[in-house]
Design a protein around this nucleic acid. Sequence first.
DNA 1: ACCAAAAGCCGCCAAC
DNA 2: AAGTTGGCGGCTTTTG
Length: 317
Amino acid sequence: MLPHKVAIVLFPQVQLMDVAGPADVFHLANELAAKPLYQLIALSSQGGLQTSSCELAMHTQPIEQFNAKDMGTVIIAGSGKQGVRHAINDPSIRNWVLAAHAAHARLASVCSGAFALAAWGLLDGRQATTHWSATHLLRRHFDRVQVEPEALYVQDQGIWTSGGVTTGIDMCLAIVEADHGRALAMRVAKQLVLSARRVGNQSQYSARLAAQSGRYAELIAWIEGHLRQALDIPRLAYRASETQRSFCRHFASETGYTPAVFVELMRVQRAKELLESGVPVKKAARAVGFTSDEQMARAFKRRLDMTAAEYQRSLLG
DNA sequence: ACCAAAAGCCGCCAAC
DNA sequence: AAGTTGGCGGCTTTTG
């Protein structure tokens, strides 16, 4: 089987970590699988040495020497403003990436690389993210992009975008997982000594955001303060002075979560915080309102794809 | 790992 | 006329 070609496209003033993180993930995947799963290719407009924003330079190949149609994955690394602008207006890079996309290559960006994809129209109608400090800019300049400011990384119809710097690692782990399964991705994460593997959609944050304003702000605040008690739909609807049917409908459209899912996310989030401060699993489970540690284990599996004990252990390194 | 019971969820639709 | 409400039924998910 031929290795899957992964092209990383560098611009002037590239962020070193945007390149190094993904590169090491794919390289370690090869090592740990003991098979050449991925072939890494660093590309730039002219080839040669590319100086990163921190002055360390990387060797690259001229992009036009490679056939875009051969690429399995193309990663656009982030860089400073001038670098991105330069890339956006460089027709050789643009056409090459578009050709790769037309040939069904998987596209991905790290950090400000999303601006290049957006400028070329590739993110129209798609969910995407970029560095947290630039999400509002992305939204302002490209109103057809569904910007997800809370996500570490997002995948929508074959195009992946990730937030800043180290999230490129999280994204590439998810790519490895999609290609070769969870076991290999976990081994790579472990090899990289990543404490806790982070999932792409930080839904806990979204849940918390939803709590800050809007029609159910008060109810949500109350939920947060009363996680230990039973929070089923009849009770919540009663507190909201609505019928169950209307409450469910309104709550879901307001927060994006059904009531039960929302409560579970809150409990998992709070449990994580307790586990982080060293509280034992059983105690944490009771403290946040899970009726048993068994129930918490199931919730952790659902939301984080790991057990509470695994989560706690992952923090200790 | 399984299963029956319970709870959650959501489309449907008549009634506002 | 268009939009919201809430009861019902049944399908899916969760629980113990």
